[in-house]
Amino acid sequence: MEVADTLKIGTYEFKSRLLLGTGKFSDLDVQQQAVDASETEVLTFAIRRLNIDNPDNPNFLERLDLKKYTLLPNTAGAQTADEAVRIARLAKASGLCDMIKVEVIGDMRTLLPDPIGTLEATKRLVDEGFTVLTYTSDDPLLARHLIEAGAHAIMPGASPIGSGLGLLNPHYLSFIVEECAGKVPVIIDAGVGTPSDVAQAMELGADGVLLNTAVAGAKDPVLMAEAMKLAVDAGRKGYLAGRIAKKRYANASSPMEFMIE
């Protein structure tokens, strides 16, 4: 019997290994079609003040069939552990989810995470019973500390958020994959631009990919969402299948015997 190849995060289990952000879509109908095409089961959201001057602005979450998706609110906007904890508690108080994506941003130009605040927020939210997925840099030792702090998933950025630069440091990402193996899943988060970036991440042994801008900003977001889904599957199968070793020179695939002379 074939064993289902699922993504496990804490007590959650998903068939899809693609997590989708919900920002930057220009049209809510297109967004829904893109979500459908991606076949994702996890959608990220941010927590913000309601615009009390215009409370009836259309809201994607309130249009969603919430039975079909697990919500992954993020702490985007937080620059300290205290701010991240406050946002996480607000998200959980909705009663819709106990997952939280911790992000504590340390620099507004690069949007790179602040490692100290990130570790602190992770510890505190694990202690409060959240299922914690932590956005981090491509630092394998920070990943180790986050695992020790109880993080349920490690989410290293491939490159700066929204940059579309792809995997800048695949070597260190593969160290993180090794660090997390058998402990917690690795979900590559931020910076992927193309399906080939996604496939590369999955071939490295990542357990999943979270992306947003690459789909929302594409000329055809729905088609790109489908392409990303296929790339996750292709990369995952490629990883499981086991790639060939690289060789410096050619190695003919047709027999070298019984040549016609």
Partner: peptide, 11 residues
């Protein structure tokens, strides 16, 4: 009083 809600966001 802070009144907050879920908005689009992610990556």
């Amino acid at each position: 009083i802070e009144i907050v809600h879920f908005v689009g966001g992610g990556r």
